[in-house]
Design a protein around this nucleic acid. Structure first.
Lengths: 336, 336
DNA sequence: TTTATTTACGAATACGTTTTAGTAAAACAC
DNA sequence: GTGTTTTACTAAAACGTATTCGTAAATAAA
């Protein structure tokens, strides 16, 4: 069944040309107020809905943006999408969601499929396993792209992030101030700027405060949860750290389980702080100190800048904000 | 800038007609293997990407589905989207996300905008504030729709849900078995089947076990978080329940905060169980007993049935599963 | 060999919209 | 009054693909 009411229907009914109808619907200056009113009225009466495919084809605009993210069952990304959606909805844009599941090949498949003009712009948070950047190079040449949170170097595009370096530095200092002497680091996102900046903050803080450091205090994130659990357990047993900084939320909870298993008390035996947007952080046993990123605002800002590009509004590089995370001190890093 | 390489480009290069190219790309039986190979090869070489708008316009298919949900910063919906995305990606479909923010007017705006043929099918979880169903009636007449989790009566469409009645019944019995005498109920989604079935399970269990009941043991969910907190606090103070069943995750955490404020011990003074997909439920203080819905599977099933409709595969009504939630007993309902 | 069928392609049209170019009529300038 | 501009519209051409219909050649059936 073909579309029931089109511009043709309206045109015939009103005895005017389809061009006039189209222009009236688009509020063109060429059309008299009188005619516009008649068209709009009839359109409403007949429940005319513009065919998006035809419109896209002719105008080369889709009123759609794509959001490519590594996962969605994660409070950070859920909140970021909320921010993105708010901006998109206000502008009448549609939002396509693509989940890479931290898999670079899937990411490539998605970016390739978006080269065809399906969307007007793209928001990306890069998969943790992405090393080769060719697919992004091609993409940013063809379509407006804004990266958010998970960003990469050597790609010429706008990037919206939080203060990864500073917040990790501050978190490390927080542990030092609370008496930690051996602070371990759970290292994730090591391929991305995000991960590199975070660990740099940790390393610099250790150096500035003359604390113990060393590669054996650093545990790399692994894709396998059981492996992560074992690695963390080994770290705690063999290195006996008295503080842990987790660069992602997913590695904080295993720490709790390991401490349960080993009979260690948080924060007395081991203090823990983690990047996290968990709403239940205050209710954990003990409540979890967090570096909480402004996820919603990151989403909003990213979408905002994407639309600035789409609107061809000029802006300076120094308008691009680096958003502030907040350090929330709770019992997991509490004194005794 | 118009599309750089189209069927026309390929046709010219290979000295064949546009129609042949199109058919070759669609693997039509009309085209020889030889020609298909040539076309596919050149397409790959020139990085031809089919123009979706043109394709949609002509074929009246969009290879896109819409997912309309009330919120996304919620583990249930995140997981459901994961399930939906898995199915959609396997079939090469694109997924549009719409968040109603539990607002019926926004919901109506979305459903109306989807009448224009932007998508091939729709998955919906109804907003809690939706009472008037006219927009759904119109929608299901025009486009394949599958409802999931948050469903409504009087609409002729496939509905994928979990065993809301049975699981709430079982949870109530669990509290009774653990010694509760006055069991309160935090009542949400009261406009929807989902909410009605849940509370029916609670009520029937109370009746079957000759337990105290009454409207003053029931607290209605409110859109304002502070109001919910106050209502729960009032409930606990004035009614002194020894058990609480929360029909949604969002109301369970305020119970914890209220107990903290009032100095009540969970589970000794008050046992709590809640519908929830929180990954941190085991780590809360105390760990939270939950009715956990198979969110991922609900998403998968819903998407699966939508594609059955799109494929015009016939199926029986009794093929539609009612998925089983699991009752996870933890410390918040533990004996002493 | 003759006839029927299959194979492999091309020409042309349609999908519904937007946009360009053209033009009567009306309004204005002098 | 003439000449110029403005207003409000139309006709027609695109956008890139999918599909219908027609057909010449190749193959199979008789």
């Amino acid at each position: 069944m073909r579309q029931n009411v089109t511009v043709k229907t309206l045109a015939k009914e009103l005895n005017i040309s389809i061009g006039t109808v189209s222009k009236a619907l688009n509020d063109s200056y060429e059309i008299s107020i009188d005619t516009k009113q008649k068209v709009l009225e009839l359109a409403k009466k007949l429940k005319y809905e513009r065919n998006p495919a035809a419109s896209n084809l002719r105008s080369q605009k889709t009123k759609t943006i794509a959001v490519i993210i590594p996962q969605i069952a994660n409070n950070f990304f859920s909140l970021a999408i909320n921010g993105i959606e708010e901006i998109a909805r206000k502008r009448g844009y549609h939002v396509l969601i693509y989940l890479t599941h931290e898999n670079s090949e899937i990411e490539i498949a998605f970016t390739d499929s978006l080269l065809s003009g399906r969307v007007d712009g793209i928001l990306i948070s890069v998969s943790s396993s992405t090393e080769n950047l060719d697919h992004f190079r091609e993409l940013v040449n063809k379509i407006p792209v804004v990266f958010f949170d998970r960003t990469i170097e050597d790609i010429d595009a706008i990037k919206i992030t939080a203060d990864d370096y500073e917040s990790t530095y501050d978190a490390t200092v927080h542990l030092i101030n609370n008496g930690c002497k051996r602070i371990a680091y759970l290292y994730a996102l090591s391929c991305l700027n995000t991960g590199k900046r975070r660990i740099a903050g940790y390393r610099d803080a250790l150096k500035d405060y003359d604390m113990e450091s060393g590669e054996n205090l650093i545990v790399n994130h692994h894709n396998d949860d059981d492996q992560n659990y074992e690695n963390i357990k080994n770290l705690i047993i063999s290195q006996k750290p008295d503080g842990i900084i987790s660069s992602i939320e997913e590695l904080a909870l295993p720490c709790y389980y390991v401490c349960n298993e080993l009979g260690l008390n948080i924060p007395n035996d081991l203090k823990i702080i983690s990047f996290s947007n968990l709403s239940t952080a205050p209710l954990l046993n003990p409540s979890l100190s967090t570096i909480t990123q402004p996820a919603f605002e990151i989403g909003r800002e990213a979408a905002g800048f994407l639309f600035k590009i789409l609107d061809q509004k000029p802006f300076d590089a120094d308008e691009i904000p680096k958003l502030k995370s907040i350090l929330i001190k709770r019992d997991s890093t509490g004194p005794l």
